[in-house]
């Protein structure tokens, strides 16, 4: 028996769609995998689910057992040796902090968060270790790992016989591959844009923004939650860049926007 609910619709002898959904990373995951036999589609979905759960296990700051939680608890007292994967993720995020003129910041959840808190994170590429030079620093990868997970899932998809798929992590990170069974690409209505839609193929759509009554986006310059509820959506070739840019652009001021446009030139478009 399959480990998750799914709906399998056969369209004709060669065409089908398998819709799979489940919870992971504190959100819902929805996948539409086209034109595979049911068992194969469910097998692929199970492999992708396992991959998402694997990432969630080490990079979830809400799970006290995770590698990230241990880092947040102990790195202000001593240097922590990390798995190569988590080290690479954090290093990349810090690089993105520079490339977004500070608008993308994985330390906004620190107490207190003051400008340049991120400078208290010392990443040593040679030893694979990280140390915090101040207590209270907290690294939060919540949004970013959704994009990262989408990229890992994309890798699995490319190795599989499935070329037409739509995968959504929490509705905010969406990967569209190949085509919708009814036409070219995958047409998607943009969140909060009055029914305007885009057609994606081999791309990710990432959206950041507060939902009404739930202000979670923090401006790294002020340390306060932003109150705008207008979502920012970006289209990128990969999910990680999508997360970085949608988050950064949602809080960026005009100067930061121009900086981001230059440093990520050719790597994204605003949806």
């Amino acid at each position: 028996m399959y480990p998750f609910p799914h709906l399998y619709k056969r369209l004709d002898a060669r065409h089908s769609i398998c819709y799979v959904w489940f919870e992971a990373m504190h959100t819902r995951v929805d996948m539409a995998l086209c034109h595979l036999p049911e068992a194969q589609a469910c097998g692929l979905a199970a492999a992708m689910r396992d991959e998402i759960l694997r990432i969630a296990r080490f990079a979830d700051r809400f799970n006290p057992e995770s590698e990230l939680s241990r880092l947040n608890r102990e790195a202000s007292r001593h240097e922590i040796k990390l798995s190569a994967e988590l080290h690479a993720i954090i290093s990349h995020c810090m690089d993105c902090h520079r490339r977004t003129a500070g608008a993308f910041d994985i330390t906004v959840q620190s107490t207190p968060h003051i400008p340049h808190t991120i400078d208290h994170v010392l990443c040593n590429p040679h030893t694979g270790t990280i140390r915090f030079t101040r207590p209270g620093v907290t690294i939060d990868l919540c949004g970013y790992i959704k994009g990262y997970a989408l990229d890992q899932v994309h890798r699995l998809l490319k190795q599989s016989p499935c070329s037409d798929a739509l995968i959504s992590l929490g509705n905010s990170s969406v990967l569209a591959c190949g085509n919708h069974p009814g036409g070219q690409g995958w047409p998607i209505v943009l969140p909060g844009q009055a029914g305007r839609s885009v057609t994606l193929s081999g791309q990710c759509l990432t959206t950041s923004g507060n939902t009404e009554g739930h202000y979670h986006l923090i401006d790294p310059c002020t340390g306060h939650a932003t109150s705008s509820t207008i979502p920012t959506s970006v289209i990128t070739p990969d999910g990680s860049t999508g997360e970085v840019l949608s988050t950064a652009l949602a809080v960026a001021d005009e100067a930061q926007r121009q900086f981001i446009a230059r440093s990520f030139q050719g790597q994204f478009s605003l949806a």
């Binding site: 619709k9 069974p181 036409g183 969140p191 839609s197 507060n210």
Partner: peptide, 21 residues
Amino acid sequence: MVNDIEHKLFDAIPFAGTSWA
């Protein structure tokens, strides 16, 4: 979307919001 595909409609897929509550 899945129901529409079964009934051969081609339309944009709406995503509810930026984060699922």
